[in-house]
Measured scan of single mutants.
Amino acid sequence: TELRLDINGREIKVDGADKETLKELLKLAEKNNDEKAIRIIRHLLER
């Protein structure tokens, strides 16, 4: 399955993203107070 998050109005594919990319996405999600995106990205970073 493909995991996509809508961050800042942009749909971004997050599964398969490297750790650096995920960290950047996490910063974006935190800036937007997007709890769902934050939770998902943190979960991916823990893998």
Rank of each mutant, 00 (worst) to 15 (best):
T1H: 12
T1R: 05
T1F: 14
T1G: 14
E2I: 11
E2T: 06
E2W: 13
E2H: 09
E2M: 11
L3K: 05
L3C: 06
L3Q: 11
L3N: 10
L3I: 15
L3S: 08
L3D: 13
L3V: 15
R4L: 15
R4M: 14
R4D: 12
R4P: 10
R4E: 14
R4C: 10
R4G: 11
R4A: 13
R4T: 15
R4S: 13
R4V: 15
L5G: 04
L5F: 08
L5E: 07
L5T: 04
L5C: 06
L5Y: 02
L5V: 13
D6L: 15
D6M: 15
D6A: 12
D6N: 15
D6S: 15
D6V: 15
I7R: 01
I7C: 06
I7E: 03
I7D: 03
I7Y: 05
I7M: 06
I7H: 03
N8G: 14
N8Y: 04
N8K: 02
N8V: 03
N8P: 01
N8F: 06
N8D: 10
N8R: 02
G9N: 04
G9W: 04
G9I: 02
G9P: 01
G9R: 01
R10K: 14
R10V: 15
R10G: 08
E11K: 05
E11H: 07
E11N: 06
E11C: 10
I12Q: 03
I12S: 02
I12K: 01
I12R: 01
I12T: 04
K13A: 11
K13W: 15
K13L: 14
K13D: 11
V14Y: 02
V14A: 04
V14D: 02
V14K: 01
V14G: 02
D15K: 05
D15Q: 06
D15V: 05
D15T: 06
D15M: 07
D15S: 07
D15R: 05
G16M: 14
G16R: 12
G16A: 15
G16T: 14
G16K: 13
G16N: 09
G16Y: 11
G16V: 15
A17L: 11
A17R: 11
A17V: 06
A17Y: 07
A17N: 13
D18R: 03
D18G: 04
D18Q: 03
D18V: 03
D18M: 04
D18A: 05
D18W: 02
D18C: 04
K19R: 12
K19V: 11
K19W: 05
K19L: 11
K19H: 09
K19S: 08
K19N: 07
E20M: 06
E20H: 08
E20S: 07
E20C: 06
E20P: 05
T21C: 07
T21K: 12
T21V: 07
T21Y: 09
T21S: 10
T21N: 07
T21E: 07
L22T: 00
L22W: 02
L22H: 00
L22M: 05
L22P: 00
L22F: 02
L22G: 00
L22E: 00
K23N: 07
K23T: 07
K23M: 10
K23R: 13
K23I: 09
K23Q: 10
K23F: 10
K23S: 09
K23D: 04
K23W: 13
E24R: 15
E24C: 10
E24G: 10
E24Y: 15
E24F: 15
E24T: 13
E24Q: 13
E24P: 01
L25C: 03
L25R: 00
L25F: 06
L25D: 00
L25M: 06
L25G: 01
L26A: 02
L26E: 01
L26P: 00
L26R: 01
L26Q: 02
L26G: 00
L26M: 08
L26Y: 08
K27Q: 09
K27H: 12
L28Q: 06
L28Y: 11
L28R: 04
L28W: 13
L28M: 10
A29E: 00
A29M: 04
A29H: 01
A29T: 01
A29D: 00
E30Y: 13
E30F: 12
K31I: 10
K31L: 12
K31D: 13
K31M: 12
K31S: 11
K31H: 09
N32G: 14
N32M: 13
N32E: 13
N32V: 14
N33F: 09
N33L: 08
N33Q: 08
N33M: 09
N33Y: 07
N33V: 05
D34F: 04
D34N: 06
D34Y: 05
D34W: 08
D34A: 09
E35V: 13
E35D: 09
E35T: 12
E35S: 10
E35K: 08
E35G: 07
E35I: 12
K36S: 10
K36D: 09
K36R: 10
K36F: 12
K36L: 11
A37C: 03
A37S: 06
A37H: 03
A37P: 01
A37E: 01
A37Q: 02
A37Y: 03
I38Q: 07
I38A: 11
I38T: 07
I38G: 04
I38W: 09
I38H: 03
R39P: 03
R39I: 09
R39F: 14
R39K: 07
R39A: 09
I40G: 02
I40Q: 05
I40Y: 11
I40M: 10
I40L: 11
I40N: 02
I40E: 03
I40A: 05
I41Y: 03
I41C: 02
I41G: 00
I41M: 03
I41Q: 00
I41H: 00
I41E: 00
R42W: 08
R42T: 09
R42P: 00
R42A: 05
R42G: 03
R42C: 03
R42I: 07
R42V: 08
H43A: 12
H43K: 11
H43S: 10
H43Q: 11
H43F: 15
H43T: 12
L44D: 00
L44S: 03
L44C: 04
L44G: 01
L44V: 07
L44A: 10
L44R: 04
L44N: 03
L44P: 00
L44I: 09
L44Y: 14
L45K: 00
L45T: 01
L45S: 01
L45M: 05
L45W: 02
L45H: 00
L45G: 00
L45D: 00
E46W: 15
E46H: 14
E46R: 15
E46D: 10
E46A: 14
E46Y: 15
R47Q: 13
R47F: 13
R47P: 11
R47D: 10
R47C: 04
R47W: 14
R47H: 11
R47I: 12
